[in-house]
């Protein structure tokens, strides 16, 4: 990206804010099953936090910092999402049946484990990576 900014404040704020957004996006992702949030929203928010980094700093720098191939991340996300569906098939239920149960651990208390979260991870990765690929491709042109 070619925006040559010398706005010191912008750069410093971005450093902090983008990671805050990233953290919040992960919270939103996990909150998804019971509160607003989930794979779509979490993925999009992650994408926008990374985009903020790209907008602020040099593209090369970020590429070094996050050496991720987003195209393969799309397929990884899709594979996870499609893959969780097979759990149902193995057990004998229809494709994409999701399971959950409640567990109690000392110190932490009762919590829920659901295969739906795994499925949502796939959605999250797919959405985040797709959005990033679209924007970074057009940004990286020429």
């Amino acid at each position: 990206m070619k925006w040559k900014t010398n706005n010191l404040l912008f750069i410093h704020v971005t450093r902090v804010v983008s990671f805050l957004i990233l953290a919040f996006s992960i919270y939103l992702f996990f909150a998804g099953h019971n509160d607003p949030g989930g794979g779509f929203i979490g993925g999009l928010m992650t994408a926008s936090s990374i985009l903020l980094l790209y907008l602020t700093f040099d593209k090369r720098k970020i590429d070094e910092m996050l050496p991720i191939d987003y195209v393969s991340l799309i397929s990884a996300g899709l594979l996870i999402a499609f893959g969780t569906g097979f759990i149902g098939l193995f057990i004998g239920d229809p494709y994409l049946t999701q399971y959950f149960d409640y567990f109690t651990l000392p110190w932490i208390g009762e919590f829920e484990l659901a295969t739906a979260v795994l499925f949502d991870v796939g959605i999250y990765l797919g959405v985040a990576a797709s959005a990033l690929v679209i924007i970074l491709t057009i940004a990286g042109d020429q």
Partner: peptide, 9 residues
């Protein structure tokens, strides 16, 4: 919700 994401695409 899904339609929004698709329309983005």
């Amino acid at each position: 919700l899904t339609a929004i994401v698709i329309s983005f695409g």
